[in-house]
Amino acid sequence: MTQPLYEVRDVSKSYGSVIALSGVSLKIHAGEVIGLVGDNGAGKSTLVKVLSGAHQPSEGTVILEGTERKWNSPHDALVAGVETLYQDSGLAPHLSVSANVFLGRERYVKGLLGKLGFLAQKEMDRVAHENLDRVGIAVPQSNRSVSQLSGGQRQAVAIGRAVSWASKVIILDEPTNHLGARQAGEVLSVIKAAKERGLGVIFISHTLPHVLQVTDRIVVLRLGKIVADAPTSTFDAESLLGTITGLID
């Protein structure tokens, strides 16, 4: 098999005396969608934070395209092409859509003013709109404040931002939360489109039909350990639920 795009080996993470992850290994290939599932508190978000550079693992290694990496901050991972949509939204509601899309990656006007940090706002408004459009997210106006958007639209912007910047891996922690059926469907199409672009996608959700619908492989976490890692075709709704809850081993 080809070299994995992104990989963690024997990762453990504890918060004081709480062991949130113990000895977790996971591989993802380009153009692959992995479903990461597990009960509340299973350690999914913790694994996401390790993958995205928000937390350093207590033990274990993180490997991107065959090279061992140490993320000191989420920014390190971003620069390397790993984008994350956090469960507890990563948008700044007081800023506009485009300001959010470009947060940390602003474009500047030319010349001296640009060196002083003056922003090319019109250009960012336009490009943000194009980028969101390209990944299949329709947002009314990119100069509108995020606080004026509906919950679903906000989520769409957050996903659109992550997908449009990701060059290698995209991690989506419960992206369909709080979404209506139609918007959730749109998120699933965005995931499929990202896969077509050759990105590795890690999709976390409690909505098992969604997971069964878009993923190639499913990884089940229980109490900080991986209890199953198999192609999606080997699961059905019932067996997946059983594996998550521990009724099936």
Binding site: L91, A99, G104, E106, G117
Partner: peptide, 28 residues
């Protein structure tokens, strides 16, 4: 006023006040 409303300095200050976690996650 120009630095607050038209430049990176102000943009990041709004971002920090709006959602510090998001600002940090964006590399600020």
């Amino acid at each position: 006023g120009f630095f607050l409303h038209k430049a990176r300095f102000g943009r990041y200050i709004y971002a920090i006040g709006s959602n510090e976690f998001a600002a940090r996650a964006a590399g600020i």
